[in-house]
Design a protein around this nucleic acid. Structure first.
Lengths: 221, 221
DNA sequence: CGCTAAAATAATATATGATATTCTTAAGTG
DNA sequence: CACTTAAGAATATCATATATTATTTTAGCG
């Protein structure tokens, strides 16, 4: 698929980065114009997104961007910790030197981006988030379980949507957390790395919840 | 959707229960005749199943039933333990009397079915597996995380496909395991219940691996 | 004037046929 | 025997048509 996979990525991207808003009705007619694809292709895409949970598809009533809620965010943060910690365990056991190299590289790129943001350059948000993803992925890449990596990637994206929603930047703190995780991972201290990761996500969650509260973005359920 | 969701369930069922074999090519023409649905509906269905991992959809080359492998089974068993144990933790914390009632009921139905099988009645395999699912689901039903339950349900189904593949029956042993889990869950002993569950799945895994080996069903990767 | 029911409208789910592209296979060539 | 080419098969995409179901509007009634 060329058209299909393109549309899929585009719509998923638009949901994650908020161009398509939580709860928004996805009328096929509108999508057709907006993404310039045929009905069939669009419906295939929406079905995939529905089964991943980015889109709701109540019977006979079309498609909606999956709504947000505090509970949903909490669940997702918990699942991210669960899956990523488990993957970390495996990855720190199995990772070889090649893995270490990729990890160091991924961290370096993320670090550069974080520096830039600290210096005041708030552009390139998507690049920054991509580097963040690539770093976390590099950490668990050696876990050697495709099933696990797939589940994690989806949950990560769902978590990312909430982060993008409130666009909160934790600056130097998150930067230090990333560095600490890199170090503990390289020294193969799984327990410490998992603890740091859990805190990292937990801190992000708190930040996110506060911002959602301030911006009055959200129903409790 | 009536046609759509029906076809979805049917094809998923046929994959899990082996009517559609691992690695089998799913030609649209063939599916059209077999399930009596239109191309568009079928493609929507296959896209959903692909995103859940029951079907592979390599670009431009149609659809295939996701192949089996020893590694895949191992990954899935591990993920089932991870997700179900986590959900157990939450569920034992939060479950109320209503939950206990449903759990006892689910166990009773499973127990009856297991008795019947022990007595030699090997029919109703699908009912038996449904009761097994309902029991495990009842255990974690109070975890209060839709995201978690969804992930678990999918992993459970993938695990089930392997079980159906080798059709091994662990008889009295599995029966005792279920009873032990019921008791420890009702007494809210999360650690014990998790331990029992991990063993339960691990035992099933071993059984499955042995049977796969005997039946020469499988490539290592 | 507010409410319910009927009618009109809009949108979805499904099916079909058409076309361009791509994959697969078989045949032929060097 | 490897490689290229040509034929055939299958897929991906699109446009269109229709039945069914939601939603909105309108009209009628209390």
């Amino acid at each position: 698929m060329t058209v299909g996979s393109t549309i899929y990525q585009t719509i998923k991207h638009d949901i994650i980065f908020g161009a398509l808003k939580p709860g928004e009705k996805l009328k096929l007619d509108m999508l057709k114009k907006r993404y310039d694809a045929s009905l069939s292709t669009l419906r295939e895409t929406l079905n995939r997104l529905a089964s991943e949970g980015f889109v709701d598809a109540p019977e006979q009533r079309g498609f909606y961007v999956h709504p947000i809620s505090v509970d949903d965010l909490r669940e997702i943060a918990n699942l991210r910790v669960l899956l990523e910690c488990h993957a970390l365990d495996l990855s720190l056991q199995k990772g070889d030197t090649e893995w270490e190299g990729n990890l160091v590289a991924a961290h370096h790129k993320l670090y550069r981006m974080e520096q830039e943001r600290l210096a005041g350059n708030q552009t390139k948000t998507e690049d920054w988030k991509r580097y963040d993803w690539e770093f976390h992925f590099a950490m668990i890449a050696a876990c050697d379980s495709k099933n696990l990596l797939d589940l994690h990637a989806t949950i990560f994206d769902k978590y990312l949507r909430y982060q993008m929603l409130v666009l909160t930047y934790r600056g130097e703190v998150a930067m230090r957390e990333h560095k600490a995780m890199l170090d503990s991972a390289l020294s193969r201290d799984a327990e410490l790395t998992k603890k740091l990761l859990a805190q990292h996500v937990e801190n992000g969650l708190i930040h996110c919840l506060e911002a959602m509260d301030e911006q009055e973005l959200i129903p409790q359920r």
